[in-house]
Write a protein that binds this DNA or RNA. Structure first.
Lengths: 142, 142
DNA sequence: AGAAAATATTTCTTGCGCGAAATATTTTCA
DNA sequence: TGAAAATATTTCGCGCAAGAAATATTTTCT
């Protein structure tokens, strides 16, 4: 009974660290959720809906993050010509610039380093355990 | 490179689920961080500082959560007589009532169930991996 | 065509969560 | 003793994150 409760508090600690790393490595200019969204749209424009599903955040949350990214002029909102309900989120030139400088370096720096610390087996087993927990918790929420 | 990045997104999913469960099982009356704080103080009063360290949240965050718990009259703030910088957080009668009804049932319902789904070995290994990742990330943040 | 249903997004309200600055009090020490 | 340092907490500003309600538009269906 004490054991798995420990596990869950480790998860929380980890998430906070993860977010902190993002901020630091991205020069405090882009947050973790902002980064995830930028990664989604930097190749081609996507709708808010696409993005929400891809990164598993609610529409309203994504909409709010886009507000801030738009304010920083890293992305822009474009209404679809044919279906005016749809809003396309598109990278700006400023993002293209930024991307070259920071985002790619970052991606490798954090995850490749982590892959060296963990064995393939460890990653695999942990992934499996996490999936089990997720499935269990999902059943609990309905 | 793709592998451990997957792992980190699983952590995020898990945390969200975890928080959702708390809300649901606690009848939408107490949130997860609120629950952690209530658990800290339900035996004996603690200071904001004690609580912050125990659950690893900043003073300001804990102070805010206490505000809301106080509003719901589940806890109260008591100034220390001898050192007036210190604020003791104390359970109210309302919390005692609430505790009997909900909190204990909850504690067993979620974690004991999880312990049945996971093997001891799985928990142990996962805990070890998480610690490795945490140590790695901590070094990255400095 | 026109009402009703469906779809896409935004707005609003609530609750974390942090760091920095502000406030209050106590301790230290010159 | 009285200024300075240390300690404990709160306040402020910012950015998530969610659900519910509002808005805008398109599709469906009679």
């Amino acid at each position: 009974m004490k054991t798995s409760s420990n596990l869950l508090s480790l998860f929380m600690k980890l998430n906070k660290l993860h977010a902190a790393i993002f901020r630091k490595l991205l020069d405090n200019r882009v947050t973790m959720p902002q980064y995830f969204i930028l990664k989604q749209i930097h190749e081609e424009p996507k709708t808010i809906g696409d993005i929400s599903k891809a990164i598993d955040l609610s529409y309203s949350t994504v909409s709010g993050i886009i507000d801030r990214l738009e304010r920083e002029q890293l992305v822009e909102r474009i209404r679809d010509r044919h279906d005016r309900r749809i809003v396309w989120i598109r990278a700006t030139e400023k993002l293209d610039h930024y991307k070259q400088k920071t985002m790619e370096r970052f991606q490798t720096e954090i995850y490749e380093g982590l892959d060296q610390v963990l064995s393939g087996e460890q990653i695999e087993n942990t992934e499996k355990t996490l999936q089990t927990i997720i499935t269990y918790l999902e059943k609990k929420v309905e």
